[in-house]
């Protein structure tokens, strides 16, 4: 399996999916008009990864902004991770938010209440 590296743009995040370390990074802004198209390769990569995953998968989500169209796709990504958990693998989602960004913290808590994977809320300190 190959590493997938998607470079960020003003409307889409930088995404790095590393099969040999089990680390997944999603960072930046996610506000594309067509989120399904943007997230399709990520979801496809995860479909492959969960067949032969690392024993420990760490997902770092550090988004500055995301639109509601992306929120559905992010949920789809997280739902793939639930499968790892079901298969007795360790998974953690590190959800980063800026100190004064209550909306971003709340968005993470929304996902935490829907997805059966452990979340860690991490405040970014400058």
């Amino acid at each position: 399996m190959e590493l997938l590296n998607i470079e960020g743009t003003p409307k889409t995040p930088t995404i790095v999916l590393n099969p040999s370390t089990g680390v997944i990074d999603i960072k930046g802004r996610s506000i594309p008009e067509n989120s399904i198209e943007f997230y399709r390769p990520v979801v496809e990569w995860l479909d492959e990864y969960i067949k032969n995953p690392q024993s420990n998968t760490v997902v770092n989500v550090q988004l500055e902004y995301f639109n509601t169209s992306s929120s559905k796709c992010i949920l789809d990504v997280f739902k793939k991770l639930e499968t790892l958990k079901k298969n007795q693998k360790d998974v953690v989602i590190n959800w980063y938010y800026e100190e004064d960004d209550e909306d971003m913290l709340e968005a993470g808590e929304d996902y935490e209440s829907i997805i059966k994977v452990p979340f860690k809320m991490i405040q970014i300190v400058d």
Partner: peptide
């Protein structure tokens, strides 16, 4: 949360969440 988790995506890309958000 209900709409996020239950509603399917429209072809236009909207999840019906915009106004709620």
């Amino acid at each position: 949360k209900f709409v996020l988790n239950n509603q399917t995506f429209s072809e236009k890309g909207g999840g019906g969440l915009g106004l709620i958000d």
